[in-house]
Nucleic acid binder design. Structure first.
Lengths: 211, 211
DNA sequence: TAGATTGTTAATCGATTAACAATC
DNA sequence: TAGATTGTTAATCGATTAACAATC
């Protein structure tokens, strides 16, 4: 199968999410590209192309099989290929991420949470005992996590990122409101809340519409 | 000035962020489009076009004035035009959002936090007393917030969104992992962590590189 | 002057949308 | 059959990049 592009991945996730959250669809069985298009707010041609790309074929006058779509998306996105992750930063944000209910559905397994604050060490978040950041390297050797989630203050982000990289992390999901620099081979995805926020506020202030 | 497009807004935020976080630039005074381009990972032509769009002109052989850029971005994005917001949902995520340090810089002022859990009502988060969701409508009448931030569980999201819309909200920033439906006139921005996550995991699993 | 950098137009690339025949 | 929907090609649109003269 061809490599999926970011836009495609995002749309596939949206379709998947909608199908999962509307179990009545499994009963009904099928859904048309037009109906999905309206919900996700894309063109119906786009939907059909996305499905074609992951090998799902529909039936004229009927539509696409909901169950088949879900299975094909899980397969195309490798959602069943679980990978391990650790969270660094057990503050409110770290806790919120650890409790995020969707991780199960997206193949990410949180194996450990670290924090520099010794007062937090030992407390429990989302069923995991917070570990001291001192043990990051030794625990990484044991866990061999692929994904590191950064929810530390901006000032600490670069240092922790460096340590994660040295410890063999393969990807970093950065929630810290700063830029971290990592080697070429490391996959970095920043969650830039400020950009999303700026867009929202700009549009409110200009009374301009739609996303 | 022309209406800015989402991509432009995102880039402007990135420039602004970088300039703000590197105060040595104010000392040095100027920065070239090429240098900024490398940092934000866009083309240098893009940077120059973005600056042209907000009325910032550079000097050949020297670059752009850092201070001037910052001021122009603040003005273009209306960051100094503060608007009021409320948060519904005082869980870990709501608390993390309330404590987000960048709000000050992006013109959003959190005026109140609501929660349905009476045990949380009265506790303090980021300097604000958590209010009962029962008082949402009466408080909205007083505060007249433009932006509502949804950090409630998925099941509650639609109901709260409806109440916010009836209470006169103008924009919703939705962190709940579900789709909410709002009238055309309401600006809705979803923070789809699952899409970002799926992209990250997909790339790790396929060993494909870079964003 | 020489050379680095801007400013801007033209070219390319990719994503989105329109059109429409094929299908059940 | 008629009509709704798919599948796919062509057209459009917008965003990105290349090229290069203008400038200090």
């Amino acid at each position: 199968m061809n490599k999926l592009r970011p836009g495609q991945i995002r749309r596939l996730v949206m379709y998947y999410h909608y199908l999962r959250d509307n179990p009545d669809l499994s009963t009904r069985g099928s859904i048309s590209s037009g109906e999905l298009a309206d919900i996700i707010d894309v063109d119906d041609t786009q939907v059909r192309k996305d499905f074609a790309a992951i090998g799902v074929r529909g039936q004229p006058r009927i539509g696409f099989d909901a169950k088949e779509i879900s299975i094909a998306i899980r397969s195309a996105l490798h959602l069943d290929h679980v990978c391990d992750a650790i969270i660094v930063g057990a503050g409110r944000l770290g806790g919120a991420i650890a409790s995020y209910p969707d991780f199960n559905h997206y193949g990410l397994k949180i194996k450990a949470i670290f924090d520099a604050d010794e007062k937090k060490v030992g407390t429990r978040i989302a069923g995991l005992k917070v570990n001291s950041i001192i043990n990051l390297e030794s625990e990484m050797k044991r866990i061999q996590a692929m994904v590191g989630i950064l929810s530390v203050p901006a000032v600490a982000a670069q240092e922790i990122a460096d340590r994660l990289v040295r410890a063999g992390i393969r990807a970093i999901w950065n929630f810290a409101p700063t830029q971290v620099i990592v080697p070429e081979r490391i996959r970095l995805v920043n969650v830039h809340l400020s950009a999303s926020l700026a867009e929202l506020c700009y549009c409110v202030r200009c009374k301009c519409k739609g996303e």
